[in-house]
């Protein structure tokens, strides 16, 4: 992993680039971050990236900003977090300031609309690719509990429109209960 000024620069420009392409909500930037920081640069582990996704989804505020804070902080402390925040908010800030002065010309433009329609299909492909990469290890591991939890949370949000925060909180409580139960059982055996 890089150190010093080079790390700051890489962190800033990677995040800037990802933020400029975050169409369609928080999980898109998490997927892009996973591709860049886990797959490509190997700076963050797969597990950590999923933990960051859970924390940034549960905390208040925009998920993209929260995820950038965590990634920046993990890689380069508070300076890293500040750099990542700046890189995340700059693209929307600049684009919206420009668009707000020419909204009608922008929204009604056929070229803009057709490009966005194509990009939407491309973003869907990126998210689907990341989903497959994340699901496969759990299926190959063949442990029942993770597969059941994965399926249940997918179904809860997709078919029953459950609030994402509740899904994470319920799983956290379940994890707490299971850990307590396991440690109790282990202690019982030791005695």
């Amino acid at each position: 992993m890089q150190k010093g000024a080079k790390l700051y620069l890489l962190l800033f420009f990677y995040t800037l680039k990802l933020s400029a392409f975050t169409f369609g909500g928080g999980f898109v930037i998490v997927s892009l971050m996973r591709k860049a920081f886990v797959d490509r640069l190997h700076w963050i582990s797969e597990e950590e990236m999923l933990d960051f996704a859970a924390i940034s989804q549960t905390a208040p505020g925009a998920m993209a900003v929260n995820a950038s804070i965590l990634v920046g902080f993990r890689l380069a402390g508070f300076t890293g977090a500040l750099l990542a925040i700046a890189a995340t908010i700059l693209p929307p800030l600049i684009i919206i300031i420009l668009v707000s002065y020419g909204y009608d010309a922008f929204a009604g433009n056929i070229a803009v609309q057709s490009i966005l329609r194509g990009m939407q299909a491309g973003v869907a492909a990126v998210l689907m690719d990341v989903t497959v990469s994340l699901v496969l290890p759990f299926l190959q591991e063949k442990r029942a509990l993770p597969i059941i939890l994965m399926t249940l949370s997918f179904a809860a949000v997709t078919f029953f429109a459950c609030n994402v925060v509740y899904v994470i909180l319920v799983c956290a409580l379940l994890g707490m209960g299971l850990t307590l139960w396991r440690t109790r059982r282990k202690d019982g055996r030791a005695v």
């Binding site: 996704a53 989903t131 997918f154 997709t158």
Partner: peptide, 27 residues
């Protein structure tokens, strides 16, 4: 660790759900 281990697969489910809704939106 125990809590995170149960949350991770759920987060994967959430990402899968986001992927599906984006796909449907674009199709």
């Amino acid at each position: 660790q125990g809590v995170l281990q149960t949350i991770r697969p759920a987060v994967v489910g959430l990402i899968a759900s986001a992927a599906l809704s984006l796909l449907l939106l674009s199709l």
